[in-house]
């Protein structure tokens, strides 16, 4: 990893711009959302997108979700607010509590009492995507950029492989296609390793939250540590996993089943392939709907 104070940030910026241009992630005149948790990836992405937006004439709106994780999310949201304010970017925040009537901490407690057997990441992941999509649609955004880096992508590939979830595996990619009611998501940092994103944030002096989510455990963390150990001894194996996956996806592309048609959820009206969306199902299981 090269760490010349001037060349290294430029190299990250170049790879970011290449991804944005090649996949047409943001075009002049468009209004693009950036999902900002306050961590190093999303804060770095917000800075990069806001700076490129000024040059390429697209508008950036920061979107944050306050899940309600005591001792973790508060500081991260402060970083998000500061970054948006310093960049002069509109910042929208919604919370689990005001949207669903309970924080994630409360949901985790309820899940234990109700014996749902589901882990915190299931509630958090499903509901965060639900709120981000709703916020983006209400704000009239054409796309939402997320801070997923190379490590996130490779971990997701391996996890879906281990779980045998071919459908989810084949949906992974630099951009998700547009479907009625869903705002497409794009990942401009997808080919930049997590450690390099962190180095960029530090070299640029960005205020970021480096805390670890108290709910992060289980197989996801094990896959992350396994890949990092492997990469330390065999450099470039993360890129190897990504490139091989892309070639396999190309080959399997024609065999993919068409995605189910979307309808409005009977409870909340949000798009879903079934009668009731996953968020409403989860809330019902917790006695919140």
């Amino acid at each position: 990893m090269l760490l010349c104070d001037r060349c290294f940030p430029r190299s990250v910026e170049r790879r970011f711009r290449k991804a944005v241009y090649e996949k047409r992630m943001a075009l002049p005149g468009e209004k693009i959302g950036v999902a900002v948790s306050g961590g190093k990836d999303s804060i770095t992405l917000l800075h990069l997108m806001a700076e490129l937006g000024r040059v390429k004439k697209f508008r950036v709106v920061a979107l944050s979700v306050d899940e309600g994780i005591k001792g973790y999310r508060e500081e991260a949201l402060t970083c998000a607010r500061e970054a948006a304010s310093s960049l002069g970017v509109e910042h929208r925040v919604v919370s689990f509590r005001e949207s669903f009537g309970a924080t994630l901490d409360e949901m985790v407690r309820l899940a234990g009492e109700e014996g749902t057997g589901l882990d915190p990441c299931t509630y958090c992941g499903v509901m965060r995507r639900y709120l981000l999509n709703r916020m983006a649609r209400e704000a009239g955004l054409v796309r939402v950029a997320t801070g997923h880096n190379l490590d996130d992508e490779v971990q997701a590939i391996l996890l879906n492989y281990l779980r045998g979830d071919l459908s989810r595996l084949l949906r992974l990619g630099p951009a998700y296609s547009s479907r009625e009611g869903f705002v497409p998501r794009v990942k401009p940092l997808r080919e930049i390793p997590e450690r390099e994103v962190a180095a960029y944030a530090l070299l640029k002096g960005l205020r970021v939250h480096l805390g670890q989510c108290p709910y992060a455990r289980g197989i996801h963390a094990e896959v992350r540590d396994f890949l990092n150990r492997l990469e330390s001894r065999h450099p470039n194996c993360k890129f190897g996993v990504l490139r091989t996956f892309e070639r396999l996806k190309e080959g399997l592309g024609e065999d993919r089943k068409p995605e189910a048609e979307l309808v409005g959820c009977e409870v909340c009206g949000e798009p879903t392939p079934g009668r009731v969306c996953r968020t409403c199902e989860l809330l019902k299981g917790l006695g919140l709907r």
């Binding site: 990893m1 996130d152 962190a198 180095a199 070299l203 480096l210 805390g211 989510c213 992350r224 990092n228």
Partner: peptide, 30 residues
């Protein structure tokens, strides 16, 4: 990542007597 003062250092850098280093855990996902 390893920081010496305000500068990040690469793994190949050789250490000198009395140097002060900060090790930052930067992997947060999972």
């Amino acid at each position: 990542l390893v920081r010496k003062g305000k500068k990040l250092v690469v793994e190949e850098e050789r250490l000198s007597e009395g140097e002060e280093l900060e090790v930052l855990r930067v992997v947060t996902g999972g």
